[in-house]
Design a protein around this nucleic acid. Structure first.
Lengths: 188, 188
DNA sequence: CGCGAAGTATACAGACTTGTCTACCTGGTT
DNA sequence: AACCAGGTAGACAAGTCTGTATACTTCGCG
């Protein structure tokens, strides 16, 4: 760690640009200019653009999960938990959570759409993030809902509404979608 | 119209490739080879790649709406209508509707993610498709639900669940998401 | 003091991109 | 019979992309 870790600087800049414009639309030179880092340094830390992309996805997975878990830490009742989940999503959608950057839909959905091959490493990493979310829901709700079937169907509902409101907000511009989703989730 | 309309041939091939791989990932030469059309012919029908992309989005909007409206034509009760909607989505997700091509998520969500500028023509066309869907829902349910508030909240629910199940199926690989969404929608 | 890791700056190779241009072919209409 | 819109094939211009190479600088540590 010299002054500011150049590797981290590259990942942060690349992630910001990839998230905003899409992966294929952003070239390496743009990332270099924006971050103020030399090309040699990039290829010192990463073997290729592909490796940089994978590091960005890992970074986003980590920072998103950290943020989300911290926002939804109270699982004293299902009602409280559900409220936390969609209030957090509402904050994200309406740019009230600085750590996630300007809202531009789900980075993993956007990125997965740019790769067709299901064996592709990037596509697999995107899917992995979604299972992280699912596991988190299951882990938090397990103590509250003893019946396995009931648990699974609530987790399924939450995932469906989460994906739904993120996409309605992104492509339809409905910035209240998370609050609508919350109201629906609370009716069970 | 000579034998087979070359313009249509180009749009069909380009749409298939854009949908599968993403817009930026597909070059014009790939479209030419795949469709067996000469470059001169492409630039005879379209001023640029951008114009071809726009034609593809218009084509997808048209073919998707035609298919969807035909699948959801019975609005004798809200229950029947909701069942039709999610059964149609289930067919699409599980590749039982040939006219939509191999399922790869929502073409409009995928495409919109590749453009950052909200003034971009392509992004606007993607948003337009989503309003077409919304208007269709409103138009079909209006005679069945006299109360405006109730109508709006049901339309909102359907849009949320529709986007949700499409994305869960695409990025999480949950091919039963449409049936789950149907069950939830029917509880109101 | 000197070494080596990490950095800057930039030229360059080689492949790929969009879009233009020339030269030629084909089939229907007047 | 002659014309011409619409087609093929492919070379080419001009630019962009990733990744490599060269030459120089800075800084912490033994």
């Amino acid at each position: 760690m010299k002054q500011i870790d150049k590797r981290q600087q590259l990942v942060n800049t690349a992630l910001k640009l990839f998230y905003k414009k899409g992966i294929h639309a952003v070239g390496i030179n743009e990332i270099l200019v924006e971050s103020g880092v030399a090309k040699k340094t990039l290829y010192h830390h990463f073997t290729s653009k592909e490796a940089l992309i994978q590091a960005c996805i890992a970074e986003r997975d980590h920072s998103f999960m950290t943020w989300f878990i911290q926002k939804c830490n109270d699982n004293s009742s299902t009602e409280i938990f559900i409220k936390q989940v969609f209030d957090a999503l509402d904050e994200w959608i309406n740019d009230k959570s600085v750590e996630l950057g300007s809202f531009s839909g789900c980075f993993f959905v956007n990125s997965a759409a740019e790769y067709s091959d299901h064996q592709n490493e990037i596509k697999k990493l995107c899917l992995q993030h979604k299972t992280h979310i699912k596991h988190f829901f299951e882990q938090q709700l397990e103590p509250l809902i003893p019946d396995k079937n009931q648990l699974n169907s609530l987790v399924g509902l939450l995932l469906l509404l989460k994906e739904g409101c993120i996409n309605c907000a992104h492509v339809m511009g409905d910035k209240q979608s998370a609050l609508k989703a919350k109201a629906l989730a609370l009716v069970f």
